[in-house]
Computed example of a mutant assay.
Amino acid sequence: MTFLRLPVLLLTGVLALAGCAAHQPVALYQLDSGNPGQPKQSAGMSVLLGPVSVADYLQRETLLQRQPDGSLSAATDGRWAGSLSSDIDQLLLRQLAWRLDSQRVTLAPASNAGTPDVQVLLSITRLDSGDSQPAILDAQWRVLDRRGQVRDNRIVHLEEKHAGGTAAQVKAQGILLQRLAEQLSVAVKPLANQPALADEKKPAAKPVAKEEADKPKMPLASPIRTDMEVFRF
Score class of each variant (00 low, 15 high):
Trp80Lys: 04
Gly82Ser: 02
Gly82Thr: 03
Leu84Val: 06
Ser86His: 12
Ile88Gly: 03
Asp89Thr: 07
Gln90Asn: 14
Leu92Asp: 02
Leu92His: 05
Leu92Asn: 02
Leu93Met: 12
Arg94Met: 07
Arg94Gly: 10
Gln95Cys: 08
Leu96Trp: 04
Ala97Thr: 01
Ala97His: 01
Trp98Val: 03
Arg99Gln: 15
Arg99Gly: 01
Arg99Val: 00
Arg99Thr: 00
Leu100Pro: 01
Ser102Pro: 00
Gln103His: 13
Gln103Ile: 05
Arg104Gly: 00
Arg104Leu: 05
Val105His: 00
Val105Ala: 02
Leu107Ile: 08
Leu107Met: 06
Leu107Ser: 04
Leu107Phe: 01
Ala108Arg: 09
Pro109Ile: 03
Pro109Asn: 05
Ala110Gln: 08
Ala110Trp: 02
Ser111Cys: 01
Asn112Gln: 14
Gly114Pro: 01
Gly114Tyr: 04
Gly114Asp: 08
Thr115Asn: 12
Thr115Gly: 10
Pro116Gln: 07
Asp117Ile: 01
Val118Tyr: 12
Gln119His: 08
Val120Lys: 10
Leu121Gln: 14
Leu121Asn: 11
Leu122Ile: 04
Leu122Phe: 02
Leu127Glu: 07
Asp128Pro: 01
Gly130Ser: 07
Gly130Phe: 00
Gly130Arg: 07
Asp131Ala: 06
Asp131Phe: 10
Ser132Glu: 15
Ser132Arg: 13
Pro134Leu: 11
Leu137Ser: 06
Leu137Thr: 09
Leu137Pro: 06
Asp138Leu: 13
Asp138Arg: 11
Ala139Ile: 00
Gln140Met: 10
Arg142Tyr: 09
Gly148Val: 03
Gly148His: 10
Gln149Phe: 11
Gln149Thr: 13
Val150Phe: 04
Val150His: 09
Arg151Glu: 14
Arg151Ile: 04
Asn153Val: 08
Asn153His: 13
Arg154Val: 03
Ile155Asp: 15
Val156Gln: 08
